[in-house]
Amino acid sequence: MPDHQSNLIMNNAIVADEWTLVTMPAGEEVVKKQAGKVVLFKLTGEASYTADQIANTVIPATGKVLVPLAVWRERKPELAARQAAGELGIWLDTHELLEDLVSAIEDINSLPLIAVHVERFADGRIFSIGNLLRTRYHYKNELRAFGDVLRDQLFFLKRCGFTSYLIRADRSAEDALASLQDFSQPYQGAVDEQLPVWRRVDRSSV
């Protein structure tokens, strides 16, 4: 039965989340300004974690864990057994370099789960990251979106290769689930359906 206490959507259903999300201790937030305005989005490739934050991140000793990319890169020996057992997933922020993940792992499909965190819904880099993971790097396993993920984005995240969506606790997972049916047929080709509609629909009898 679906877990109605969960806000995780996968396979067109609300399901229990088997993964424990590991986050770093909070660091000092630096307010950046440009032309007198606060810069809301971190630059791609910008370093946003300190060595102390990475070292002090607490990782549960058992169960499936979803760890930050920076923590995994610096603490790989400690996490090797978890990865070999299929109990390790990796998440990254939209400003982090996807190449840092790909270059640090021999087989990206050894990861059962990769997740992308959206700090603010207006950050569209998540769509490019999903597309690249599926097309350039041929990632085949669960690809999750979480953070400030809105109902109206789920259909398009699916088109970019995402297969699960962790909806914010203050939003309705049921409403978000319904959004995956907002459109009956996508027009363009994309990750989830490569052929455009004019190649999929037989009009010979029309």
Rank of each mutant, 00 (worst) to 15 (best):
198 W>I: 06
136 R>W: 00
166 L>T: 14
154 L>R: 11
175 D>I: 12
147 G>F: 01
81 A>Q: 14
108 I>F: 02
45 G>T: 12
125 R>P: 04
67 V>D: 08
151 R>A: 04
194 Q>D: 04
55 A>K: 15
84 A>W: 01
173 A>K: 10
50 T>M: 03
104 A>S: 15
204 S>H: 07
143 L>R: 14
81 A>K: 15
62 T>A: 13
179 S>Q: 09
76 K>C: 00
86 G>M: 06
9 I>T: 11
65 V>S: 13
144 R>Y: 02
203 R>E: 01
31 V>F: 00
201 V>W: 01
70 A>V: 11
107 D>E: 07
133 L>K: 09
192 D>Q: 09
184 S>I: 02
109 N>T: 09
124 G>H: 04
194 Q>V: 03
107 D>S: 13
114 I>G: 12
92 L>H: 06
150 L>I: 06
164 S>P: 08
116 V>D: 11
115 A>D: 03
202 D>I: 03
163 T>N: 10
77 P>Y: 02
31 V>E: 09
77 P>C: 07
35 A>Q: 14
174 E>D: 13
31 V>P: 06
60 P>V: 11
37 K>V: 04
160 C>Q: 07
43 L>A: 15
102 V>W: 00
123 D>S: 08
147 G>V: 05
32 K>T: 10
104 A>P: 05
9 I>K: 10
146 F>V: 07
1 M>Y: 04
31 V>M: 10
133 L>W: 03
90 I>A: 13
12 N>P: 02
181 Q>A: 10
3 D>F: 02
113 L>W: 03
78 E>L: 07
144 R>E: 04
128 S>Q: 05
179 S>T: 08
153 Q>H: 06
61 A>R: 12
35 A>T: 12
191 V>K: 10
8 L>Q: 13
200 R>E: 02
104 A>K: 08
55 A>W: 00
13 A>E: 08
109 N>F: 00
148 D>Q: 09
43 L>F: 01
202 D>E: 04
22 V>L: 04
142 E>R: 15
14 I>F: 02
174 E>T: 15
97 L>Q: 15
177 L>T: 07
9 I>G: 13
188 Q>P: 05
16 A>P: 05
8 L>T: 14
150 L>Y: 05
26 A>D: 12
124 G>W: 00
102 V>E: 05
7 N>G: 15
146 F>Y: 11
118 V>R: 14
97 L>D: 13
25 P>I: 04
195 L>D: 12
